[in-house]
Structure formats: C-alpha cells, structure tokens
Design a protein around this nucleic acid. Sequence first.
DNA 1: CTTTAACTTGAACAATCGTTCAAGTACAGA
DNA 2: TCTGTACTTGAACGATTGTTCAAGTTAAAG
Lengths: 194, 194
Amino acid sequence: MRKNAKFDRAEVVNNATKLYWEKGFNGTSMRNLQDVIDMRPGSIYATFGSKEGLFKEALNRYADMGIEELLACRKAVDSPLKALKLFMKSAVLDYTNSAPSRMCMLAKTMGELTEDNADLLQEAKRLLAKIEAEFVTLLQEAQELGEVDSNKDVHKLARHIQVQTMGLRTYAKACDDHTILETMVDDVFKHHPF
Amino acid sequence: MRKNAKFDRAEVVNNATKLYWEKGFNGTSMRNLQDVIDMRPGSIYATFGSKEGLFKEALNRYADMGIEELLACRKAVDSPLKALKLFMKSAVLDYTNSAPSRMCMLAKTMGELTEDNADLLQEAKRLLAKIEAEFVTLLQEAQELGEVDSNKDVHKLARHIQVQTMGLRTYAKACDDHTILETMVDDVFKHHPF
DNA sequence: CTTTAACTTGAACAATCGTTCAAGTACAGA
DNA sequence: TCTGTACTTGAACGATTGTTCAAGTTAAAG
C-alpha cells in the first residue's frame, strides 16, 4: 500500500471552507484557494476534480460544523429549547470567533448561485434540509419533555427556527448593534408559537 | 444645447438591475451587461463610471421599486397592517412575475460582497434602512388607527418585518412549496408581537 | 455647408480566470 | 539499490475579466 497524500485533507477542506464562506463561490479564485490550502493546481484537481467539487465539499464541511455546534449546545444546557436558543445566539451574535462571515454560508450560497450551478444549489438545499431535520429532532425531544405543546407541528416549528436564524444573520450583517440583535433573538423565544 | 444621449437611461438601469439581481455583482460580467442594456463599453463607462457605479444605481433602482410596491399595496387595501402583509406575500410568493430571483437583491448583495467593495456594502445597508423606515411609517399609521398597540415600539416592529421578509425569501428559494410559504407569511401576522 | 462639441463604437489592453499536463519527486515493494 | 507507481509541481493554455481610448458618428450652432 501507498502512503496517503502528504496534505491533511480535513485541514485543507477547513481552510477552503473558510475562504469560500467569506468570499463566496464566484468571489473566490483558484489562486486564492491555492494560497490558503497550500496546494498546487494539479493536486487540487486530482483530489477534488474542480472548483465546484471543492466547494461542494466545503458546503458539507460547513453543515457538519453547524450540526456539531448544535449538538454541543444541547450538551451544554439542560433543555433542548435552551439549546436551540443558545445555538441561535451563537450563530447571530458570536462574531468574535473566527467566523469568516456573519451570514450563514448556505444562505449566502442560495443567494449567490443560479441554475448555472444547479448541482451546488441542490447541495445547499439538501444541507439546509439536513440542518432543519436536526432542529426537528431537538423539538421532538422538547415535546417529550413537555417544553413544547404536544399538539404543535415540530416540522413547522423547525422551519420557523430556520427562517429566524437566516433572517437574523442577514440582518446582523447590516445592523451591527449587539443589543438590538440580542433582543431580537430573545424575542424569537418569547413570542414564539411553541 | 445638445440633445441628451440616445439611450433611455431609466430603461438601461432597469435592465441592468434585472441582470445584477439575478446573477449578483460578481456573477455578472460587463459583457453580459453590454448585451442586456445594449450599450458599448465606452458609453457605459462614460455614463456610470464603472461596474460598481452601475451596480450602485441598480441597487437604488431596486430599492425604489420595492418602496413603490409597498405604497401600491397601501393604496390597494384599507389598512396599513394589511398592506404590510400584502407586500410580504408579494415578495415571498409572487415568483410568477418577472422577478429575476426569489430573494431580496439587497440581502443577496449583503451576502455576496465583502469589505473589498465597502462602498457598495454601505449602500446596500443604507437602502435596507430606507426600506425599514417605510415600514416604520406604515406601522405608525397602524398605531394611529388602533391596529397596533400604542405602547409598542414601531422601530422594533419594523425590524421584525424586515427580518421575516428576508428570512422567508431566502427560505423560499430552498423550499418551493407555495402552501408552506403562504402559511408562514400568515403566521407572521397571526403570532406577531403587535 | 462647415464647424464643433457630445456621444458612441469596438478593437485592444493587461490582468486574471479555471484548468491541463509533462516533468519531477517521494516512497513502498522486490 | 533499483523499479514502479502514486503524488506533487509550476509553467502554460485559451478564455474571459474590467477597462481604456483613438476613431467614427451624430446633430445643434454659426
């Protein structure tokens, strides 16, 4: 057997994700990528096939990070509803960390791409649905614990969380006022239809 | 005095706005623009200065169209709150018309651009604030008519409308289910904090 | 009709785009 | 040590990018 490639694939995809997340698909050039992932064109194309192939992998990495974060929130607090709120606060307010953009990378991708990149668009939709399914799981748990009325539709609530998160993160890029944003997240869980 | 340019500036900006709205700033090339506005590079640069200059004008045209639409909604119904709901339904659900994208062009711009185009980003923020101010005006009227409690903060409510609209329009691009979307808009005005 | 200034045209520019591939390097197996 | 293969390298490709500008066109003024 041959040894694997010299580069650390996970690290490479992480760095590519950061750049794509910040600059978008069209705003990122292969030469930008070469610099941040420290690979030459030949290796990149042998490994990922194309700019689109690497972007697709970056989208998946991004979604996985989000789900990991959500599960981490769940473990950090004693209730699934509090976990959702913590996750949302983190997504909307925590720009102190090394997040390349305030906005959701999947939402950015939905906005940027057209049918010219139908497969990437499809992948972004699929991953949004995957995340929404995680919301459903948490909401079902909340229902079992009595935090959410048992007659509520958890899929509907999950859609609601999704819309709020994407909307607030977009608003956050335009607003910048931390107090206003925090109040808006609090209000989601104050006036919510749970 | 000399006669004005042969081209119809308003028409040109309209067509440029359509293309920019659909493809985004980075996704649109000057040659794409030349085709749809039927002008040659020299004329374009003499008139608009740069790709960014034309985009800035397109952003303004887009915002003006939105405000016109909002005022048209106000005239179409007998209450400011119903007007807001009508506007939101139109923005989220009416993809039958010739809108180049389901998403808000300003939201798309906020997502696509970075500090590399700080002035365009600033302009998009300014226009989002301008639209939000129109929401405030309608909400104040609603307050005067007793449709909204007088102790509510109209600026806060306007922010809420803004977030819902942007969030739902982003979700709409990923969802496609008209029934689900319509229910979500209805729910905004059912469970709202007014 | 001639002049003159405003405006349009499209070829051309340097820079950058995504991608390819022949040549070089590195290392497991014999 | 030698061979063979997996992998990396970076120069190079044609296409396209945003932009410029000298030449051409148009039409009002003299």
